[in-house]
Amino acid sequence: MEDNQDLIKLIQSKFQRMSKGQKLIAEFILKHYDKAAFMTASKLGNSVGVSESTVVRFADELGYNGYPKLQKALQELIKTKLTTIQRIELSSDFISEENALKNVLKADIDNIRGTLEKINSNTFEEVINRILKARRIYIMGLRSSTALADFLGFYLNLILDNVRVVNYGVSDAFEQLLRLDENDLFIGIGFPRYSSRTIEALRYAKNNGATAIALTDSLLSPLSADADYTLLAQSNMASFVDSLVAPLSVINALIIAVGLREKDKTSNTFEKLERIWDEQKVYAERDGFI
């Protein structure tokens, strides 16, 4: 069941052969697949008036090894399809004002845990090697991923001094990538809903011989399709706000790993920075300390 795009068609094709209870589940999913994607088997069963075991058998009927596999397929299906308005409506069903703090923190914990299970340590190490070998490093992330790109670019540039964050402003992204070639590296950061501009830029970098790295949520991501290396970070959230906790954690790991590889250079850089910060009073004094 790898092709999630065919899930709706699969349900429709099997509908006539399903039991009465399974048909109720199928009808609910076809009409409300955005909500069903975040329901437990028990909650889905209660919503349509069938038992939890009927929901599990429904997943088996579709060829999934348990309900969690079906749920994951539904979540993959809706990631790029929900508008912001739909996300707002969805979040109100699963997150209330009273439990927002607990639910969001729990979801982010789950995202960190899922990332730890998904990310490939060998790929991570190879990305570090490529970063250290690159002549120039270009980083691009738009929309909500802009903060991630800026954070990564800020710290990597302190360590390596050959990093450029590609912005979408006065000059076009492709003008900023004009001199990119096989000696360079491009890091594209994107999560649902994926920015088409970042996808195009990563593809451009790959076609011009640069090493293309994607930081995204799935190997099914359009960024991953053209990347030489993909770093996975889970970003599931039943909300209109994107969850960037796990992606930022992966970025922290990248920065720290690069800094440890370039330990002497990093120490010298921050010694100079500490003197500058002290002289320029960059940080506010507190209780007699700076």
Rank of each mutant, 00 (worst) to 15 (best):
Y204A: 00
L248I: 12
I85W: 08
I139C: 00
A257P: 09
L7F: 01
S144N: 10
L132E: 10
E285K: 05
L232H: 04
V241Q: 13
V104I: 15
K69A: 06
K281D: 01
S96K: 14
E125F: 05
K206L: 09
Y204K: 09
S51C: 04
S121D: 13
K206H: 14
R143P: 00
K272T: 14
N129T: 07
T146Y: 15
T83R: 10
K272Q: 14
F240E: 03
N157L: 08
G288T: 07
N4S: 11
I119P: 06
D217M: 08
Q12C: 01
A225G: 00
P247M: 09
Y168E: 15
K102P: 00
L254F: 10
A73H: 07
S13N: 15
I119K: 10
S243L: 12
G288V: 08
N46R: 04
L220D: 07
T216E: 01
L90V: 10
R193Q: 15
D287T: 07
G21N: 06
S267H: 12
N167G: 06
L160A: 08
F154M: 11
K69S: 02
K43A: 04
L160N: 08
A253I: 01
I187P: 12
E182I: 07
K106R: 11
A26H: 10
N252S: 12
I251E: 02
S218V: 04
I29K: 03
E126F: 06
K81T: 02
L74G: 01
M1F: 02
Y194H: 08
I137Q: 01
S13P: 14
G153C: 08
R143T: 06
L202S: 01
K23V: 05
L180M: 03
